[in-house]
């Protein structure tokens, strides 16, 4: 395992999509290489932080009213 392989496999590693042997090799390299550790860690934290920032937004009341009206019209037409 070298720095390049860590870079190429960072997402497969984070997503648990590496085979056991490659995963072990990558872990071993990362444990001994501060730069790769920081890099892998930052990609993992990127996902965690963006997910934490993704709060569900409240749907505007007017949007729901418009939705009711549109659907009502379609249902009537169908009948």
């Amino acid at each position: 395992m070298n720095h390049r392989k860590v870079f190429d496999n960072v997402c497969n590693f984070i997503d648990g999509e590496l085979d056991d042997e490659t995963c072990r090799e990558l872990q071993k390299h990362v444990a001994a290489c501060p730069k790769c550790r920081i890099y892998v860690d930052s990609v993992r934290k990127t996902i965690v932080l963006y997910k934490a920032n993704d709060k569900a937004k409240k749907m505007p009341v007017t949007a729901k009213q418009r939705l009711y009206a549109t659907i009502k019209l379609k249902v009537k037409k169908k009948k």
Binding site: K35, I38, K45, V48, A52
Partner: peptide, 8 residues
């Protein structure tokens, strides 16, 4: 590279 260190 800088360590983002904090627990996200």
């Amino acid at each position: 590279l800088i360590d983002w260190n904090a627990d996200p």
